[in-house]
Simulated scan of single mutants.
Amino acid sequence: MSEDYEQEWANTPIAIQRVLNKTQNQIQQQIQKAEQQDDVEIVAVLKEIKKALKQLEKKVA
């Protein structure tokens, strides 16, 4: 039996969490590649994107 959830997060589909997780993993891979190539500027940008995604994840969790 399922029950209705009335909390704010109840309207957030699980798919969003999966997409965020997958995207974060992809960004982490790109960070590692950029670090290997000593591309400091790209690493900095990707880390900021990753940070923003983590903040978004906290909001939808």
Rank of each mutant, 00 (worst) to 15 (best):
Q37F: 02
D39A: 08
A10V: 00
I31F: 01
K59N: 09
L56E: 00
E8A: 10
K54F: 00
R18M: 07
V40Q: 10
S2M: 11
K51S: 15
E8H: 11
V60L: 02
W9C: 12
K47T: 09
T23V: 08
V19E: 09
V43F: 03
W9A: 12
A44N: 14
E3R: 11
L53F: 04
N11E: 11
A52K: 14
E57Q: 15
T12D: 07
I14N: 14
E3Y: 13
K47F: 05
E57D: 15
I14W: 13
V19L: 12
Q24G: 02
V40T: 13
Q55V: 10
P13Q: 08
K51A: 14
A15N: 12
A44C: 03
I49R: 11
K22G: 06
Q55Y: 13
L53K: 03
N11H: 09
A34W: 03
M1G: 15
N21D: 09
K54W: 01
I31Q: 00
Q28Y: 05
I16F: 05
N25L: 06
N25K: 07
D38P: 01
K22I: 04
Q36M: 07
I42S: 10
T12V: 14
V40A: 07
L46T: 04
V43K: 01
L46K: 06
L46C: 03
A61Y: 11
V43E: 02
Q36E: 10
K50I: 03
A52L: 11
V60W: 02
E41T: 11
V45G: 03
V60C: 05
E3A: 12
A44R: 14
Q37A: 09
Q36F: 00
A44I: 06
E8I: 13
A15L: 14
A34I: 01
I42A: 10
I16M: 03
K51C: 08
V43I: 05
K47A: 06
A44W: 05
V45A: 10
D4L: 13
Q36A: 10
W9G: 12
Q32Y: 07
P13A: 05
A34L: 01
K51P: 03
V60A: 08
T12G: 00
L53G: 04
L46Y: 04
E41F: 05
I31M: 01
K33Y: 06
E35A: 03
A34H: 02
A15D: 12
D38A: 04
Q26E: 11
Q37H: 08
L56D: 00
V40Y: 08
Q28H: 04
T12N: 12
E41Y: 07
L20W: 05
V43C: 02
K47R: 15
S2A: 13
M1C: 10
Q7H: 15
T23H: 03
Q36G: 08
N21P: 01
